[in-house]
């Protein structure tokens, strides 16, 4: 059950999102109502494989480009950017 006392706060494109520990950054991005990346021809994309091999979940995390957000857990104060 969600426990507000243990929740983690991060920002996705500047908007605060609150998630439970163990939540992946990819899930947080979708919870924030967004998608993870824009494809080379301009389509919005979101995770496909959930296991870190399709690279659709790439996002900028803490200023680093091309991070696979489905393999990274949210941490307090994390700054996540998507196009």
């Amino acid at each position: 059950m969600p426990d507000p006392a243990r929740s983690i706060t991060l920002t996705v494109n500047g908007t605060m999102v609150r998630v439970q520990p163990g939540t992946t950054v990819a899930a947080a991005i979708l919870i924030a109502g967004g998608y993870t990346r824009t494809s080379v021809s301009g389509e919005p994309r979101a995770p496909l494989c959930g296991m870190g091999i399709c690279f659709e979940c790439r996002a900028s995390i803490g200023g680093k480009l091309h991070q696979r957000s489905c393999q990274i857990l949210c941490t307090q104060g994390m700054d996540v950017r998507t196009p």
Binding site: G22, C49, C70
Partner: peptide
């Protein structure tokens, strides 16, 4: 977006979606 693998959506849900 939201078309995922079967295991893909399952993993996303286990990851907090």
């Amino acid at each position: 977006p939201n078309v995922m693998g079967a295991g893909g959506l399952d993993a996303m849900v286990r990851g907090g979606l």
